[in-house]
Design a protein around this nucleic acid. Structure first.
Length: 947
RNA sequence: GCCCGGGUGGUGGAAUGGCAUACACGGCCGCCUUAAAAGCGGCUGCCGAAAGGCAUGCGGGUUCGACCCCCGCCCCGGGCACCA
């Protein structure tokens, strides 16, 4: 390396001080070096990226990945790279401990903002997106992040989305076999129907088109006419996961309506059980696992059939508490339930209470009125009204199958059409909602579980012995059984008598997979004259996005629920209408004009990093097995460490797991899960300031005086939140690199707290990290002359002990991602060395190696100044000498009744009686002749005396 | 309402049963400087002149000893919310 260019600084700043300018010079040089040398290229076992001569070829592997960013137009602020710097520090450390490290970075570049910008300005989304990606690359490069640059891509690259489309075809060409609990090729289902191995009564007589429909209904990707979330304001439909609990779009906050529309779906529900069960094997934060469990919402219980008296058919309910069936005193259907019309009685039966009729003369009127009111309510209003139970009696009665008792049937909006069967048996004694309804409508309450002593009334949902739960004929008696046993007994009775079956239901719905947008992956699907979908062969991939004049989907008045989606691609007429030869000669086809949701590209990118140049397969089996395969029996495989924000807990992470499992079932990957270990980093937030009018003022211009804040002499108020343009509190990594240098910025971000904790940004405090690096620099370089001032003499005993204590501590911290405490220890070591006239090489070299993960440019520079050639990337991380970790003397604090009253220093190997005697003599004054009641000596720790 | 996570100096944080407040910021004092900045050194939990006392959200408990374990409560952040 060449000597640094002379830095221009104030006249009296020492010429060789580690200033921002010098740091910038060092950083640029090393970034160029790393890039030219391909320093961070990780060798694959096979293929184009294999390299048997690499220092880590064949070494134990480590695959660490960040959730890749969407490259937004405003670039990075200091909060964005927190996780990237964390994984970079960790992987640089692991490289030095012998691992072959894969740490790639890419860009999730399809998505709404580029499209909306395109709509406003007419700029093609590809142009905007590529410019943003270049800006991100430059910003990340400047931070010295050690990526394997051969493995980077954007999801918008044709080479990439070609494989996204290929995976879609895999999903489309599969069905889920519940017996084998896995996806299988659709051809196997067709063969099974043909041979009769699987019985489908309609198959034998079906026409070819009908057979296609039957098959299409089994595919894992399918078109369905079903209620979906239609968002007129965005002009597109949305997945359930993209709709907020108050019924609005997560992006844009527009109203969302339930509309029945023909859309692509993915059968993620088939994987509900496996998605829940396999969570147990993952090393993920518990809250994220819990959110996924809740979202999937598996509940186990039974379907129970209730006969109806009026000939309206059988009402099937789902219940998690079949044990309480003797306490079912009424039933409720969702207002939209299909049996409501046929059930509703012509007149009010005798015994109808006034409160049940809603003031109407006939059940039909009451039902019609209630249904109209319920339909008019938005989800939001429905929730707001949730406290008060409403409903009306249908005039119909059903028969409780367990004891033959007649129970009235109501409709009420507290029962949801979309969950279970849309109908419930109501057991007020054991269900809070049913209790509230029963009180409001004066219905009977029969306890079937004995509440605990002192229960003050209300529904009892806990465990207890069953009561009032026996048939008079002795055929069934649950009394005395606990809830679990009673459930099991009841289910077997229902099954034996044909009244019901054990059952499991899910809250999870199938994944709505099509969007009415331009900037997304086109579907590799065309439609023939039957209107049924036809998959394109692999040879026709990629299906490239066509050029269009107008990128916008048709949007509507956000409240216009009856509007119809219209896709941008449908306007590219010459693209949509196409002649193809799909095996039976050239024919006219119509292309699918929806595009895939933004999640598609991020559903599998962890796999493409493994083998990004491969144009034969998605990922070579040997490369996949090496980087992501299971490491031992029972292991799920997957990325060894995946770092990102908790906001993707159910969206991205659920979809990616689903796709990965399909690919596993079809034999394309050996790992069962995409991400073995997940880590949620915290957020860096910032203070923002507003003046008296409530307008945000530039945060950097605000000064603090006596606990108040002022801007231009005017008092302003402070708030805490995200960094953003509108709050005028954005701080960028570029500014930090300019003012302090990238290494200082990196050290500061890692030192300011644990990686998983959110915290406020404080530019003023960055100088502390710069001072640390300056002190370390000064250990090696004379600031005035630039000469290396290291001594080759042995370190003194004290220095040596400090060094090895720090090595030991830093290794432990690095393994556990405790970067803040690792840096604190490095600062202690540095401070311990700065006092020495000539710092010993023996201690300085390990210090530099240990600093390398956090301040890689500085470390490389000092390493070469100490006479080493090339990079330290693959140098060995220091190892502590165990002999130097045990002290030869130990200081024991002495407590009297829990308060420290003295200290003694004794040889480390002193036995207990010696320590005890020394301690008692030390505190003789405090004892004043009294005999201690008890003396506890904790070896190596302390002495506790009780008076 | 239910389920998670958290509450430690002026600030970010350290300590997972054994000397509470490591490390850093800020503040104060000093060195250097014509001066300022930068840099370097010292002090800095609170009360108190000191001796000493008091401090890890609040109240109890277990223990020789509790920020740490247990019980009850308060506050902050997040998730879910009529899911039968």
């Amino acid at each position: 390396m060449s000597e640094p260019a002379e830095t221009t600084t104030a006249a009296d700043t020492p010429r060789f001080r580690y200033t921002a300018a010098l740091a910038g010079d060092i950083e640029r040089r090393w970034q160029d070096f790393w890039e030219t040398e391909g320093t961070f290229d990780a060798p694959n076992p096979v293929g184009e990226l294999a390299d048997a001569s690499h220092p880590r070829a064949g070494a134990p592997k480590l695959h660490v990945q960040d959730m890749f960013p969407y490259p937004s137009g405003s670039g990075l602020h200091v909060g964005h790279p927190l996780g990237y710097i964390g994984t970079d520090s960790y992987t640089r450390y692991k490289r030095m401990t012998g691992f072959n490290v894969l740490h790639p970075m890419g860009f999730d570049a399809f998505g709404l903002p580029a499209e909306q910008y395109a709509v406003q300005t007419g700029t093609h989304p590809r142009v905007t997106t590529e410019a943003n990606v270049e800006r991100y690359r430059a910003q990340l490069r400047r931070l010295g992040l050690a990526y394997d640059n051969r493995r980077t891509f954007s999801t918008t690259d044709e080479d990439y989305y070609r494989w996204t489309q290929w995976i879609f075809l895999q999903v489309f060409n599969s069905w889920y076999d519940p017996e084998q609990r896995k996806a299988r090729p659709i051809d196997e289902l067709i063969s099974a129907f043909e041979s009769g191995a699987r019985v489908n009564p309609a198959w034998a007589t079906a026409t070819p088109v009908e057979k296609r429909k039957i098959i299409d209904d089994h595919r894992l990707a399918y078109v369905s006419e079903a209620p979906v979330n239609w968002c007129p304001g965005l002009g597109t439909v949305l997945a359930n996961e993209e709709v907020t609990p108050d019924g609005r779009s997560e992006r844009g906050n527009y109203p969302v309506f339930k509309r029945s529309l023909k859309q692509w779906m993915m059968r993620i529900t088939a994987y509900g059980d496996r998605l829940i069960e396999d969570l147990d094997a993952l090393d993920w934060p518990e809250p994220v696992k819990l959110m996924q469990r809740n979202w999937i919402g598996r509940s186990q219980g039974a379907h129970v059939d209730f006969a109806t008296e009026t000939g309206g058919g059988t009402i099937t309910v789902f219940t998690t508490r079949p044990d309480t069936l003797f306490g079912a005193t009424y039933m409720v259907l969702a207002p939209e339930h299909e049996l409501v019309a046929t059930l509703t009685a012509p007149t009010w039966p005798s015994g109808t209470k006034d409160s049940w009729t809603g003031g109407h003369a006939t059940p039909a009127e009451a039902v019609a009125d209630y249904r109209a009111k319920a339909a008019a309510k938005t989800d939001e209003e429905r929730q707001a009204d949730a406290k008060e139970k409403t409903g009306v009696f249908t005039g119909a009665f059903a028969v409780n199958p367990v004891n033959g008792v007649r129970v009235p049937v109501f409709i009420a909006d507290y029962v949801l059409a979309g969950y279970g069967t849309g109908a419930i048996m109501a057991v007020p004694a054991q269900d809070t909602r049913d209790w509230e309804f029963a009180e409001a409508f004066d219905l009977e309450i029969i306890r079937t579980v004995q509440p605990t002593d002192g229960w003050d009334g209300g529904a009892f949902t806990g465990d207890g012995p069953a009561i009032n739960s026996a048939r008079t004929d002795g055929d069934l008696d649950l009394n005395g059984l606990g809830v679990a046993d009673a459930k099991a007994r009841m289910i077997s009775w229902l099954e034996a008598r044909g009244h019901g079956t054990g059952a499991t239901t899910y809250r999870l719905r199938d994944w709505l997979f099509s969007r009415q947008r331009y900037w997304g992956e086109p579907f590799p699907i065309v439609y023939d004259e039957t209107g049924l979908p036809v998959p394109l062969p692999d040879s026709m991939l990629p299906v490239a996005l066509p050029e269009v004049a107008d990128f916008a989907p048709r949007t509507f008045d956000p409240d216009d629920a009856d509007s119809e989606p219209e896709t941008p691609l449908s306007r590219a007429k010459e693209w949509v209408e196409v002649e193809l030869d799909l095996g039976d000669g050239p024919k006219r086809y119509t292309r699918e004009t929806n595009t895939m949701p933004q999640w598609a590209g991020s559903c599998w990118y962890e796999l493409r990093y493994l083998d990004p140049k491969n144009d034969k397969v998605l990922v070579d089996a040997a490369n996949e097995a090496y980087w992501m395969g299971p490491q031992r029996p029972g292991d799920t495989g997957g990325v060894d460490l995946y770092v990102g924000g908790v906001e993707h807990a159910v969206l991205h992470l659920l979809y990616a797991r689903f796709w990965h499992k399909v690919l596993f079932d079809l034999g394309h990957v050996s790992s069962v899960e995409p991400f073995r270990k997940l880590f949620n980093q915290g957020y860096i937030q910032a203070y923002a300031f507003r003046d008296a009018r409530g307008i945000a003022v530039p945060a950097e211009e605000v000064v603090e005086r006596d606990g108040a804040w002022y801007h231009d002499g005017e008092k302003v108020t402070r708030e805490y939140g995200k960094m953003g343009k509108s709050l005028k509190n954005v701080v960028t990594p570029d500014e930090m690199c300019e003012t302090y240098g990238a290494d200082t910025f990196r050290v500061y971000e890692m030192a300011m707290g644990p990686l998983d904790v959110s915290r406020p940004w404080d530019t003023r405090a960055v100088v502390g990290s710069q001072r640390f690096l300056q002190r370390a620099w000064r250990l090696v370089v004379d600031e005035e002359t630039g000469a290396v001032r290291i001594s080759d003499d042995a370190a003194d005993e004290k220095t040596r002990r400090l060094l090895h204590k720090v090595i030991d501590g830093v290794r432990g911290d690095m393994e556990e991602l405790r970067f803040n405490t690792a840096i604190a220890k490095l600062i202690e070591l540095t401070n311990g060395l700065t006092g020495l006239a000539e710092p010993p090489r023996e201690a300085v070299e390990p210090l530099i190696l240990m600093m390398a993960p956090f301040a890689p440019h500085l470390a490389e520079e000092l390493w070469s100044k100490l006479g080493h050639t090339g990079t330290l990337t693959y140098a060995d991380f220091p190892v502590a000498d165990p002999a130097l970790l045990v002290a030869d003397t130990v200081t024991y604090p002495i407590q009297i009744n829990g308060k420290v009253r003295g200290k003694i220093e004794v040889p480390a190997d002193a036995d207990e009686p010696t320590v005890r005697a020394a301690a008692l003599s030390e505190i003789a004054d405090h004892l004043a002749g009294r005999e201690p009641r008890k003396v506890i000596v904790v070896k190596g720790r302390m002495v506790s005396v009780v008076l």
